[in-house]
Amino acid sequence: MTAAQVIRSEWTKIRSVASTVWTLSLAVVVTVALGMLIAALSRSQFDSMPVRQRLMFDPTYVSFAGMSLGQLAMIVFGVLVVSNEYSTGMIRVSLAAVPRRATFLFSKIAVATALALVVGMCTSFAAFFLGQAMLGPHQARIGDSGVLRAVLGGGLYMTLIAMFSMGVAAMLRSPMLSLGTLMPFFFLISNILGNVDATKKIGRFLPDQAGGRIMQVVPRADDTPYGPWGGLGIMVLWVIAALAGGYLLLRRRDAQ
């Protein structure tokens, strides 16, 4: 058995279920549409903004405003890719076909990650260009300093969110438990921790907040101890930890 065989098999699995199509399309549509909406609102509000806010205005980051919601669809995609195996009982058939558990899990993750990367990059570029079009006179250009990094970073961010979710789902197995942990975490808890002064210093080391730094072109006037790539690096460490945890548990546990 070669990894190439297993990757081909996992590609067949992922393309033959409807959830792949609807989660990924939802990620694209929500991220791009919400980004456009907020860009359009920013344009109409720009003249009434305080000067300080106008100076800090980050047109690139504004067009990624939809990602806070769009990432939830990416989370669902990552969770379902892995936890479907458990909720359907397919895991026993899959591991009987591919008894090497590292080959099984990492082939699955490789295929889903490649797909998430393609979709994430398309989403990020579409959100940027359509968002800038909405901003009209206040728009940034792709050639401006730091903008291309932010747009590529947006695609990487979405991919890493999906990977992190795959790792968590590999540990928790149940789709409901995984979604019930990840959704409130990224939608509520992370935001609360990041906005309350007492927990801000911890909150910014969470995967989404650290990883999100790469999408900012105009740095905020705060004392964040890492740069755009440093932030992404922190997010990568979270992803590695989640995947390692998922693999170790898969290797140790009975297949069910």
């Binding site: 699995k13 033959s16 279920v17 959830s19 479907n84 359907t88 009982g89 397919m90 895991i91 026993r92």
Partner: peptide
């Protein structure tokens, strides 16, 4: 019953 209900019989066997 250990089959993904959303997948066709053909694709189930194909991935295996």
């Amino acid at each position: 019953k250990a089959v993904h209900g959303g997948r066709s019989a053909y694709n189930h066997l194909l991935c295996l």
